[in-house]
Amino acid sequence: MTVSSDLILSERQGDVLTLTLNRPDQYNALSEEMLTALQAAIDACRADDALRAVVLAARGRAFCAGHDLKQMRGHAGDEAYYRALFSQCGRLMQSLVQLPVPVIARVHGTATAAGCQLVASCDLAVAAHSARFAVSGINVGLFCSTPAVPLTRNVPIKQAFEMLVTGQFISAEQAAARGLVNHVVPDDELDGAVQGLVGAIVAKSPLAIRTGKTMVYRQLGLPLDKAYDFAAQVMATNMLAADAEEGIDAFMQKRPARWQGK
């Protein structure tokens, strides 16, 4: 089923949802309205227990050009407005991480500033060969502070800092080498590569995937010993799940597993 709005196109195929940014003439710039629409779409996913993965895509020549600078300049001098806007964007980025299923960025064209932040905030990313990435706020006198948060959690600090202080574009291949994206493919193979990654995910236990995503991000903020304590607790609980029992039995019996999602 396909459900369309002005700013976000939502298409559900089986247990996979594709959300498509739909401001192609504005290079999918993240206006207040776009942020609100995308947040609503992500929030709706949280209550969908049948959902297995989300693909974040975009229409037009660019993936996302970042914040809508024209809209921002319409509020010149209003610090409260800017605080609220950047907080709204930060909440959206965190909601991608907090979503219990994997979120995969399908990147074509350019992903700049908050658009690069969007890619970095997704769990996985597949980029077309022609895609380019930058945190280019510095070029207009604005350090990309909020994009720096997920960028420095994806990319080694010296390489991230170079991007932040130069505003220079990096290629898709450089983005992959630095850990910003998982795979780079020819432009005409982008959809197939995304679907291949999605297929590999949905073939696994839905319970294990949801458990694992939550565990991975939570342990990142813990000291090493506490991370191991937490991981051991999660894994022990996971071992009691029906899916784990079925998966191990299927492996030993050399047959496909029949996941129950519990």
Score class of each variant (00 low, 15 high):
Ser171Val: 12
Lys158Gly: 01
Ile170Trp: 01
Phe161Glu: 06
Arg178Asp: 09
Arg153Gln: 15
Val185Gly: 02
Asn182His: 10
Val135Trp: 01
Phe169Gly: 00
Gln174Ile: 06
Pro156Thr: 05
Val184Phe: 02
Thr166Lys: 07
Gly141Thr: 07
Pro156Cys: 03
Asp188Ile: 02
Lys158Cys: 00
Asp187Ile: 13
Cys144Asn: 15
Phe143Thr: 08
Thr146Met: 14
Pro156Gln: 05
Glu173Asn: 08
Pro156His: 02
Asp188His: 13
Gln168Val: 02
Gly137Cys: 14
Phe133Ser: 02
Ile138Lys: 13
Ile157His: 08
Ala134Asp: 06
Pro147Phe: 01
Met163Cys: 10
Cys144Met: 08
Ser145Cys: 05
Asp188Val: 07
Val165Trp: 07
Leu190Pro: 03
Gly167Cys: 12
Pro150Ile: 08
Phe161Ser: 05
Ala177Gly: 11
Ala172Gln: 10
Thr166Tyr: 05
Val184Asn: 02
Glu189Pro: 03
Gly192Phe: 01
Arg153Ala: 15
Ala160Ser: 10
Phe161Met: 14
Ile138Arg: 14
Ile157Gly: 00
Val185Ala: 01
Pro150Asn: 07
Met163Arg: 14
Glu173Ile: 05
Val155Arg: 03
Gly192Ile: 05
Ala134Trp: 11
Thr152Glu: 10
Val181Ala: 03
Val184Ile: 06
Arg178Leu: 14
Val185Asn: 04
Asp187Cys: 09
Asp187Arg: 14
His183Asp: 12
